[in-house]
């Protein structure tokens, strides 16, 4: 049923795209139709995949490092008042700075290679992960904490055995958000300064009026992002195995 709906949606979008091409009479170097893009994708597949592999590495590395740093910061913020005092304002400020403005600086500091793109992805992932985990750690069911107190549990035991697992569903939703924005970070990095990657390929295609190649690269990027999202989503639902698979639906019926 879901697959059928997805297929219908995809076909509908492709049809609408083709209709816009016919109706506007735009030349292929401005707006190529789906068939032209498919042809470009087939013709330049090796080139596109080479660049896609680099972007994929940037995204995945950024996601891993960002998720680790974010979880660690969330934990520190929840565990230590001092960390809360010093780190929290810093975190808010870091979010007030637009990542796009930082991109050229990162390229300047870390070079045209992988490092600056990974750093961009980390920057963009870090905040949602930290915020979600910290929030989850602060919202432990007070009944559990009271029970632990009567059981004479130490602070660390409570944190490790109760607060952290209780916050995992919140961390998981933070990681889902992070996964959906990670490709943005990597591609922005490539856009600003790079010698490889899908962003680089798209920039070049654009400059040479190869709109079909640009669209083909875009299609691959979108497919990668969607695939990554679903992979991470499955992994996360295994991590929080005690949560109902589709909480929204479950609660609607069972209220």
């Amino acid at each position: 049923m879901g697959a059928w709906r997805a297929l219908t949606t995809a076909l509908g979008l492709l049809l609408a795209w083709q209709l816009v091409v016919w109706a506007s009479g735009a030349p292929p170097f401005i707006l190529p139709g789906p068939l032209a893009v498919a042809r470009a994708l087939a013709a330049r597949l090796t080139l596109i995949l080479e660049h896609a592999a680099i972007t994929a590495v940037e995204i995945v590395l950024g996601l891993i490092i960002g998720a680790l740093l974010g979880s660690l910061s969330g934990l520190l913020l929840a565990a230590f008042r001092t960390a809360r005092r010093w780190l929290l304002p810093l975190l808010v400020i870091s979010q007030a700075l637009p990542v796009f403005a930082l991109a050229p600086l990162l390229v300047l500091w870390l070079g045209y290679g992988l490092a600056s793109k990974v750093a961009m992805a980390v920057l963009i992932i870090y905040f949602p992960v930290t915020a979600a985990f910290f929030d989850g750690l602060r919202r432990t069911d007070p009944g559990w904490l009271e029970l632990a107190r009567v059981m004479n549990a130490g602070r660390h035991a409570v944190l490790w055995h109760i607060r952290v697992p209780a916050a995992l569903p919140a961390l998981a939703s933070g990681l889902r958000v992070a996964t959906s924005v990670a490709p943005i970070g990597a591609v922005v990095g490539e856009w600003v300064g790079s010698s490889a990657g899908l962003g680089f390929l798209m920039l070049h295609a654009n400059a040479r009026m190869q709109a079909d190649l640009l669209f083909a690269a875009l299609v691959v990027l979108a497919a990668m992002a969607v695939g990554l999202y679903f992979a991470v989503d499955r992994l996360l639902s295994r991590l929080v195995f005690w949560e109902p698979r589709d909480p929204g639906l479950g609660r609607e019926d069972g209220a």
Binding site: G143, W144, E146, L147, I162, A166, W242
Partner: peptide, 13 residues
């Protein structure tokens, strides 16, 4: 002291 609350307070994981 052992305490049994009104809710079961079981940890879901």
């Amino acid at each position: 002291i052992a305490w049994m609350a009104q809710g079961d307070l079981l940890l879901p994981w």
